[in-house]
Simulated assay, not measured.
Amino acid sequence: MFDIGFWEIVLISVIGLIVLGPERLPVAIRTVLKWVRTVKGTANTMKNELSQELKIHELHENLRKAEQQGLKDISPELHESVESLKQAAESVTRPYAKKPASSDSESSTASNDVSPPADIKGDEQEKK
């Protein structure tokens, strides 16, 4: 991005040392580095968001093409895009929905069948 060589960095640091002095130079360097990190983080965030938006736009375009072709005679690429778009839509509409009902039914039957073992039942009857 910038074509800064070794001698340019040395010249900038000497000028900074003369202008700011040895007491304020480390603080100024830390402040500049903090700004640079903030700008880089913001740029990376924007880049990620733009790539996600482009991907969503591409999926919508593929869905429109598939709808125009009747969702029957579509290419495998369009079919994959349609399926991924459907899965994304389902995850957005029901983000907290539970997974398959088979695991729920197993846990509910296990919790309903809570009876003490036979030897504990016998101990309870002897106490009465």
Rank of each mutant, 00 (worst) to 15 (best):
L11H: 10
S13W: 02
V14R: 12
G16K: 00
L17T: 07
I18M: 00
V19R: 06
V19L: 03
L20N: 10
G21E: 05
G21L: 06
R24Y: 03
R24W: 15
R24D: 09
R24P: 02
R24N: 04
R24S: 12
L25D: 00
P26A: 04
A28Q: 05
I29W: 01
R30Y: 08
V32C: 06
L33Y: 09
K34H: 04
W35C: 01
W35N: 04
W35H: 14
T38K: 14
T38L: 15
V39C: 12
V39N: 06
V39P: 00
G41C: 01
G41W: 07
G41R: 14
N44E: 11
N44Y: 13
K47N: 11
E49V: 02
E49I: 08
E49N: 05
L50D: 04
Q52F: 01
Q52R: 03
E53M: 14
K55P: 00
K55Y: 02
H57Q: 13
E58W: 02
E58G: 03
L59V: 01
L59I: 00
L59Q: 03
H60K: 13
E61T: 15
N62W: 05
L63G: 03
A66S: 09
A66W: 11
E67T: 07
Q68E: 12
Q69W: 07
Q69R: 13
Q69D: 15
Q69L: 15
Q69E: 06
G70D: 11
L71Y: 14
L71C: 13
K72Q: 08
K72T: 10
D73T: 04
D73L: 12
I74Y: 01
I74K: 08
S75I: 06
S75T: 15
E77P: 02
E77I: 13
L78P: 07
H79R: 15
E80F: 00
E80N: 03
E80D: 03
S81W: 00
V82N: 02
V82D: 00
E83R: 02
E83K: 07
S84I: 12
S84D: 02
L85E: 09
L85Q: 07
K86N: 05
Q87D: 03
A88E: 04
A88W: 08
A88F: 07
A88K: 15
A89R: 05
T93E: 05
R94N: 11
R94T: 06
P95E: 06
Y96K: 01
K98A: 10
K98V: 12
K98M: 09
K99W: 08
K99S: 05
K99V: 09
A101R: 04
A101T: 08
A101W: 04
D104I: 15
S105V: 15
S105N: 04
S105R: 05
E106V: 07
S107G: 01
S108F: 14
S108D: 00
S108P: 00
T109R: 09
T109G: 14
A110L: 11
A110E: 12
S111C: 06
S111Y: 08
S111A: 14
D113T: 11
D113G: 10
V114L: 12
V114R: 15
S115R: 10
P116Y: 09
P117S: 06
A118N: 10
D119P: 09
I120F: 06
I120Q: 10
K121N: 08
K121C: 04
K121Q: 15
K121T: 03
G122D: 13
G122C: 07
E124F: 14
E124R: 09
